[in-house]
């Protein structure tokens, strides 16, 4: 058990976005959060990453309570995320985007960078080497010096994941990673996530709408509707559940 949400509730004024949700994610699981739009999936993500604070309940990661911690601190505890609409740093190169992920692990001070102490050179060399390794893993090392936004959509998605992996996370949160992709790209992405899980020793929590993708990839799913859990279990079982079907109102027919 790597992540545990216990009785988590999130209210925004009078609106209850998440209602008393409890679930656990086990180490090296690929866990899916699904549900219709507005069900509270992204809110759930934001609570885990510390962007929102839960109104009630506990978020426990690796036996440590995350409630009240600042987002950048939570990253350093081992949780990284990507965004639904690919938020790469637009003015920076692919390499620099990935380096950002490494930066808090680079051991030199402000002073040392201004005056170019030896430690600066050593650390920069080290993280650059690691950045190239990750880019290589994703097959995009040749684009390292290109501006991030010059790459194709699919490649940008890879950069974003590479950047998240640079933070050396134990758990990766992917927000609709397959959004905007055609079936071929989706298949490649699923394969990528599965192998990355092994190679980087990751647990993956993802939000998705694409049920085929979820079926291919997830070990377990949690189905949300209006902030409430209506199903937890295997994806193949989810489709058969009456409540889940009702919530989606025949969306599954398309897939």
């Amino acid at each position: 058990m790597i992540l545990e949400l216990k009785g988590v509730t999130k209210k925004f004024g009078g609106v209850t976005a998440i209602n008393n949700t409890t679930f656990t994610v086990n180490s090296k699981e690929i866990y899916g959060l699904i549900g219709p739009n507005g069900a509270g999936k992204t809110t759930m993500f934001n609570i885990i990453t510390g962007n929102y604070q839960a109104t009630d309940g506990e978020v426990v990661f690796r036996s440590e309570k995350l409630n009240g911690l600042k987002p950048h601190t939570i990253v350093r505890k081992g949780i990284a995320r990507t965004f639904q609409n690919i938020r790469l740093f637009k003015t920076m190169s692919v390499m620099d985007n990935v380096l950002i992920g490494f930066d808090f692990q680079a051991n030199y001070t402000y002073f040392e960078s201004i005056f170019r102490f030896p430690r600066f050179f050593g650390e920069e060399k080290r993280i650059r080497k690691r950045a190239i390794e990750i880019l290589d893993y994703f097959g995009i090392a040749e684009f390292a010096e290109h501006k991030a936004t010059d790459l194709s959509y699919g490649q940008q998605r890879k950069v974003e994941i590479a950047r998240a992996l640079a933070t050396n996370p134990a758990m990766l949160l992917l927000d609709e990673p397959a959004a905007g992709m055609n079936p071929a790209e989706t298949k490649e992405l699923a394969h990528l996530i599965r192998t990355a899980r092994e190679d980087f020793d990751l647990t993956v929590l993802l939000i998705e709408h694409d049920m085929k993708f979820v079926n291919q990839l997830c070990d377990k799913v949690l189905v949300l509707d209006y902030g409430k859990t209506i199903f937890e279990g295997k994806p193949s079982d989810a489709i058969k559940d009456k409540e889940v079907v009702a919530a989606y109102l025949g969306d599954f027919a398309h897939d």
Binding site: T49, N51, P71, H72, V75, R76, A80, R81, F83, R87, L88, F89, K90, T91, M92, D96, L99, I100, G101, F102, D103, F104, A106, Y108, Y110, S113, F120, E124, I127, R163, A164, A166, T167
Partner: peptide
């Protein structure tokens, strides 16, 4: 340096920067 990168990241997308541990 990493500080300059972080500054540019803050400029480009502060939320994403935070999400990357900045």
């Amino acid at each position: 340096s990493k500080y300059g990168r972080a500054m540019k990241a803050v400029r480009d997308d502060e939320d994403a920067a935070i999400a990357m541990g900045v």
